[in-house]
Simulated assay, not measured.
Amino acid sequence: MSAEMFAHAVELRTIATPALWSVTLAALMLLLALDLLLTRRREAESVRAAAGWSVFYLLLPVLFCCYLWAGHGGGVAVEFFTGFVVEKSLSVDNLFVFMLLLSAFAVPHALARQVLLYGIVGALVLRAVFIALGAAVLQSGTWAFLLFGGILILTAGKIVKDVVAGERQEVDVSSMRTVRLVRRFVPVTEDYRGSRLVVRENGRRALTPLALAAVAILATDIVFAVDSVPAVYGVTEDPYLVFATNAFALLGLRALYFVLQGVLARLRHLNHGLAVILAFIGAKLILHWAHGVWPAVPEIPTPLSLGVIVVVLAAVTGTSLLAGRRARLRERPPAQRPDPLEETERR
């Protein structure tokens, strides 16, 4: 293999025009402003209202996918939708970590919306930075596909290792480097002061625990960006589509959090599915690089990728619900457990 073949630059093609970028960013700012207005309401948001907003934010990418299909063809639309499904799956895992952080910081329910919005805005900014870096790396040579594929496979391996070891996702606030660094240089109040991030106490400025919670969530956003951006670049090489999938997946997370708050803990096999998906996309990236060097090496088409991702997510959702049902049955007293023979006859 020659060095020229290995380092051949990738020509990134994009459907985006300056006008399309402008409209997309303007719409994104408008939706974020709407979310900001919702978070400033004093009354707590009901689960019904959160469900309505979640449906709204799920309809937006479907409508955008229809626009792509009509204006740019089915191939582009399938790439976008596949990337969106991947990013939405990863964002649900993000929500679980956000839930742990909010619990670890004992964030009042009324302030949870504000912290989540900080996390979403921070994630969007960080994803935009990583997307630009990813595009620059891809343009420097096809070796970037190997790099991205390796990152995803290593991440999948770490997830599997944690699952096999039986480690539960927990958050120890005191051990987080960012939190320790902030506490070292800036005083922090002992209690929350409403929605304020900074207050004046004893003649000097001090941060509130709400500010620490926001810093912790922003720090986790960096980790999530390292995984999510290479994952979607495994589906499409268009930086605009990569940004759009991330934006649509992150928008509405605030509302989705309150809908799934009682369900997230039941998706006990979600990490299994994410490990399979990340490893699959990592292999897809490596095969894509190998195909550019040796054309005889087959590639994994995007429609097949979408099918695999949907099947994996459906499977882990089903197994999670089944495992939860069996766990609840085991917790019942023996007298209240259903008779297996009667269950069989009923079926």
Score class of each variant (00 low, 15 high):
R337A: 01
V164D: 08
T178P: 03
G75L: 12
T208R: 05
W21C: 06
L321A: 11
D93T: 06
G324E: 10
A110D: 12
P61Y: 02
V47P: 03
L28S: 11
S228H: 05
M176P: 03
A19N: 10
D238R: 00
P61F: 01
R328F: 05
L30H: 13
A51Y: 01
A283C: 12
P301A: 11
P209W: 10
V62F: 13
R177Q: 13
R40F: 14
R204Q: 11
F130C: 09
V198M: 13
F280K: 01
I131L: 08
E342P: 03
G71M: 12
Y67G: 06
I300M: 07
A323D: 13
W21S: 08
F145P: 05
I277S: 06
G141C: 10
G166Y: 07
V10N: 02
T142G: 11
Y67S: 10
V137K: 01
W69F: 12
V199C: 08
T189Q: 07
R40Q: 15
K161I: 06
L95F: 05
V276L: 15
L90Y: 04
Y257Q: 01
G234I: 12
I131Y: 02
Y57H: 02
V76L: 09
D93K: 04
V223T: 07
G52N: 00
A314V: 00
V107G: 11
T317D: 06
S305T: 13
T245N: 03
G324D: 11
P230Y: 07
L181A: 15
A255N: 00
R196Y: 08
A27W: 13
L32W: 00
L270E: 05
A213W: 10
Q169V: 13
A26F: 11
A265G: 04
R337P: 09
T178V: 15
W294H: 12
G52Q: 00
E87G: 13
S54M: 07
A314E: 00
T236A: 14
A255R: 00
I131W: 01
G273Q: 04
F64H: 04
V312H: 01
L37Y: 10
L117H: 02
R205F: 14
A7M: 11
I120V: 14
L207T: 10
L12G: 02
S2D: 14
S195F: 09
E45Y: 05
A144S: 14
G252T: 00
L20I: 12
V312F: 09
V308A: 10
A213E: 06
M5I: 09
A144R: 02
G74D: 09
G149V: 12
V188H: 04
I217E: 02
L306K: 03
L36R: 10
L59Q: 06
A128T: 09
V23W: 15
G282E: 13
G252E: 00
I277H: 11
F80R: 02
L306H: 08
G141P: 07
F56A: 14
M29S: 14
L256R: 00
F224W: 08
